[in-house]
């Protein structure tokens, strides 16, 4: 059975409006459930959970992280065909996602990988995770992409973002400790909306942007914002857990006409690959 399905049995993600302290206790509870299947063999070519660095203030790989990596695995054939050379993850946390991307692309693309996080601790944990997998990539402590945005402009071929998407009171956004890893303010959009303003500048002409969202973030509105900037979008993975409805969205420049054959792996129960959003916005009513 796929590990993702196994994980979902242990799912402990709390409701969107739970007090932060409850979420912390559940993240810790979840940590125990991870340890219960540490012995499982690494699934496909993603990072191995038992090699992921840990720290109480750093978000451990969770349903959202697995959904993002599963989206990358589902899109692997397309990614490899694009031959990305520069890849960047914003908000890398434990390093599970950027490490997985590096492993997914390892044999074929000869890409270089960058990761950023606002937390020095997370940056070090990411470095440990990369190192435990025998990978080299540079990690920068910064707010989103500050300091990199000028020189990386127009160069990023794959941009990954698993944002703090949980709707919370505004003051929790960027708070100390683990709260900052999920607190997204009004509709969970505060950090997401800041990032959306930078995507156009960062991405190369053939660049792809993958982002995790919740239904509460209004992904259909996010797609419309990006459409105005010239980006087409699709849902690569949609995953229902007990209390979260996760989507991994993918964006690319609309003028870059391509119509690839989409043979996504479904990656476990509750996962549905969808076709292009740009032509099917009317279907998005179910998000609300």
């Amino acid at each position: 059975m796929d590990c993702v399905v196994e994980l979902e049995k242990h799912k402990t993600v709390d409701s969107l409006h739970s007090p932060s302290s409850l979420r912390i206790s559940r993240v810790r509870e979840q940590r125990k459930s991870f340890s219960s299947w540490q012995g499982a063999s690494p699934r496909r070519r993603s990072a191995s959970i038992r090699l992921v660095g840990r720290h109480p203030d750093v978000y451990e790989p969770c349903d959202d992280s697995f959904a993002l990596v599963d989206a990358l695995l589902a899109d692997k054939a397309n990614l490899v065909e694009r031959r990305p050379k520069l890849c960047l993850e914003v908000g890398c946390g434990s390093g599970y996602v950027i490490t997985s991307l590096a492993l997914i692309l390892a044999d074929e693309c000869h890409a270089q990988f960058f990761a950023t996080d606002i937390s020095q601790t997370a940056a070090q944990v990411t470095r440990e995770t990369l190192s435990a997998h025998g990978l080299q990539a540079d990690v920068v402590v910064t707010d989103l992409v500050h300091g990199l945005e000028k020189r990386l402009a127009g160069s990023v071929d794959v941009l990954l973002f698993n944002p703090p998407y949980v709707p919370t009171p505004e003051h929790e956004v960027g708070a100390a400790g683990i709260t900052a890893t999920w607190a997204g303010g009004d509709r969970g959009r505060v950090v997401i909306d800041r990032m959306l303003t930078m995507v156009d500048s960062l991405l190369s002409s053939k660049g792809w942007f993958y982002m995790v969202t919740l239904t509460a973030n209004n992904p259909s509105e996010i797609c419309q914002i990006m459409k105005k900037k010239g980006f087409a979008s699709r849902i690569v993975i949609q995953r229902y857990t007990e209390e979260e409805n996760l989507h991994v969205l993918k964006f690319w420049r609309e003028d870059l006409a391509f119509d690839y054959d989409y043979n996504a792996e479904t990656g476990g129960g509750g996962t549905t690959p969808q076709s292009s959003l740009s032509s099917k916005m009317s279907r998005l009513a179910f998000w609300r």
Binding site: Q112, F114, Q136, D138, V139, V140, H146, G147, L148, E149, K150, R151, L152
Partner: peptide, 21 residues
């Protein structure tokens, strides 16, 4: 960090116009 990353980093303090290299 490697010189690849050094080449991609600039100081972006408010008002700084020459934050690179």
């Amino acid at each position: 960090m490697r010189l690849l990353t050094h080449n991609m980093l600039a100081c972006n303090i408010k008002g700084v116009t020459k934050g690179f290299p």
